[in-house]
């Protein structure tokens, strides 16, 4: 029996979606019989344990250390090292989130092993080693590689596979791991605080109204904000808009900003550089408003309006406003 070890992130609802996808991915990397082990940063609720079983986990390990109260990439990496030290370990995986990539990079650095980040496919080859596909340029380019190293470390792209349950026959066994940590490793842990949120969070918004250079200037974003409010959505921007100082960087959608997954992405005056599309390609539907019918965004959008955003958006906001007041009158 070979073993795959997965770092699993938890939130108030249990196993996070990206980790459920990583577990699904982990089950598919070999045709050999495999046990799936999960490392958790904190003790699971009964609900989370049930989710882990439903995704095929048979061995649950929980980080426990008197000196650790916040997220600690070094402590988590020591736990993964302890869980993957034996010969029977085939791979260590995690979701390619900021935390997942960070924990796996620490594991790779301390063990001298290879770490292949943001994989969309991985398959064990007959003669040993793996054939892999991974993202480059935030997913705008795919790289096919082979990895010839034991106990491979991968992070799993959040769009690699949908989360598919495959229940383990019995409830997982649960144990704790107390890693031995140096003073420096102990010191590296996050103090967390949760700021008051205002408005719709960009990363989880169902509708994103995004503006680019074609909006014309900072004052052009008033109508973008108005439209986002009417649609119950969040405001996004392209990189040039933040580089020019028109809007804050936290609104930037793209490879170096926020990756969004809305039902509707409305791209206004955005030409569609690959770095921008890397942040919005998971949108279910994309509508582009642009003066240039040959802009790259048009090759990715489902619907297009050819025109100037400063003309189209005020008319759209007026039509939606009128529709709303008519609805109230009835």
């Amino acid at each position: 029996m070979t073993k795959v070890v997965c770092y699993v992130e938890l939130d108030a609802d249990g196993v996070v979606d990206a980790s459920a996808r990583a577990l699904t991915f982990a089950r598919g990397i070999t045709t050999r019989p495999t046990t799936l082990a999960a490392l958790l940063p904190s003790p699971p609720t009964a609900e989370a344990l049930g989710q882990l079983q439903s995704f095929g986990v048979s061995d649950v390990a929980v980080l426990e250390h008197d000196g650790i109260s916040g997220y600690s990439p070094t402590a988590l990496s020591r736990c993964l090292d302890a869980m993957s030290g034996e010969e029977d370990t085939l791979a260590v995986v995690a979701a390619a989130t900021d935390h997942g990539n960070e924990v796996l990079a620490h594991l790779a650095a301390t063990t001298g092993r290879d770490f292949v980040a943001v994989c969309t496919a991985a398959r064990e080859e007959d003669g040993g080693g793996f054939s892999l596909t991974r993202h480059r340029w935030g997913g705008s380019l795919l790289e096919d590689s082979v990895l010839r190293a034991p106990r491979a470390i991968f992070s799993v792209s959040t769009d690699a596979v949908p989360p598919v349950p495959a229940p383990a026959a019995t409830a997982p066994t649960t144990r704790t791991i107390r890693p031995e940590l140096s003073a420096q490793e102990l010191a590296l842990q996050a103090a967390e605080s949760r700021p008051e949120s205002s408005g719709v969070a960009l990363a989880s918004a169902k509708v994103v109204v995004s503006g680019g250079r074609g909006v014309g200037g900072p004052e052009g974003f008033a109508v973008i904000e108005e439209l986002a409010a009417l649609l119950g959505g969040a405001v996004g921007v392209s990189r040039v808009v933040t580089s020019l100082g028109w809007r804050p960087h936290r609104e930037q959608v793209g490879q170096t900003g926020t990756k969004v997954t809305p039902d509707l992405y409305l791209a206004c005056g955005i030409s569609g550089a690959i770095q921008h599309l890397a942040g919005c390609q998971s949108a279910k539907q994309m509508v582009a408003i642009n003066t240039d019918p040959d802009a790259p965004i048009m090759a990715r959008a489902d619907y297009a309006v050819i025109g100037d955003v400063s003309e189209v958006l005020p008319a759209l906001v007026a039509a939606l406003g009128e529709r709303r007041s008519r609805g109230r009158g009835e």
Binding site: A304, V305, I306, D308, E311, V312
Partner: peptide, 11 residues
């Protein structure tokens, strides 16, 4: 992309 129209006429 399916073109919905040009300018304000597309609203």
């Amino acid at each position: 992309a399916e073109v919905l129209g040009h300018g304000k006429e597309a609203v």
